[in-house]
Design a protein around this nucleic acid. Structure first.
Ligand SMILES: [Mn+2]
Ligand SMILES: [Mn+2]
Ligand SMILES: [Zn+2]
Ligand SMILES: [Zn+2]
Lengths: 138, 138
DNA sequence: ATATATTATGCAACTTTGTTGCAATTTTAG
DNA sequence: CTAAAATTGCAACAAAGTTGCATAATATAT
């Protein structure tokens, strides 16, 4: 996996640093989305808080991760698919938040439907976030 | 309008206070959703920051307002329709965020489609947030 | 209308979250 | 290996959100 991670960083024209490798590793190991807080907690002995902020921002810019909006002021992050590139994300999948275990997951296989808006509105991106009870909790 | 506002508070078993009246007035006057920050800015000479937090929480609890999730850690609030009640919101409409003027609006007339999830997942609520260019900006 | 009980508010003190500039360190490229 | 470029940690802030408690406002019952 170490090589896979360095590869991904180089592919995105980023210096390969301990911090970036560690954060990418966290994302690759996790099957659910991570909040800034989660990442900070799992790396705080090694890396500064500010570095985590900057790394997440950098990964966003390069299209390595995407955000998942939530209704409680706690943005989550998850890995993008290969098709995402600088500034242009193509994560057209639904996100699910389990109200029982709290995890947020990308449902890659569930595509976002097209929604027709009133005259004059132009759609750039559509986000669908479904809350309920997940597979494991039900 | 003053009477309409007091009425709404009483209907929800809330004391009629200056603070609550003022915040409800802001929502009724605005045709777009408001962030906590917006409300604080428009009331800060009169009311304490903490009171605004508590009032928004109370209005949420009673089903007077609902939140609109965004991908940038800035939850917005908007008035609910009459059908919403304590703990049970029925705002099954799409939300729109204009990337030009920044406003967030409820598209009451656009209903949220049903999305079929994989086996085992149970849907409680579906949120759809579309970003793009609004009617006025295009 | 007045007194009493209930609820809401403001304030202070605090915690958490996010930002910026800059010097020191690490990484990359030659 | 060296020099240039980029990343990091630190300090110092700023902004956002929380909690306990005394005071003030509102509602309820005489
Ligand atoms: Mn996703
Ligand atoms: Mn709405
Ligand atoms: Zn779950
Ligand atoms: Zn607009």
């Amino acid at each position: 996996m170490a090589e896979q991670i360095s590869e991904l960083l180089r592919k995105n024209q980023l210096s390969v640093t301990d911090n970036r490798k560690k954060i990418l590793e966290l994302f690759l190991q996790s099957d659910s989305a991570l909040a800034h807080h989660d990442i900070e907690a799992r790396t705080k002995e090694k890396f500064d808080r500010v570095t985590v902020y900057r790394t997440l921002q950098t990964f966003m810019d390069r299209g390595i991760i995407h955000t998942i909006p939530t209704a409680d002021n706690s943005v989550k992050y998850a890995l993008c698919k290969d098709s995402c590139e600088q500034g242009h994300h193509h994560d057209d999948h639904v996100h699910f938040i389990c109200s029982s275990c709290g995890t947020t997951t990308c449902l890659e296989e569930i595509h976002i439907p097209e929604i027709k808006l009133p005259r004059g509105y132009k759609t750039k991106q559509t986000e669908v976030v479904i809350s309920g009870v997940c597979k494991l909790c039900s």
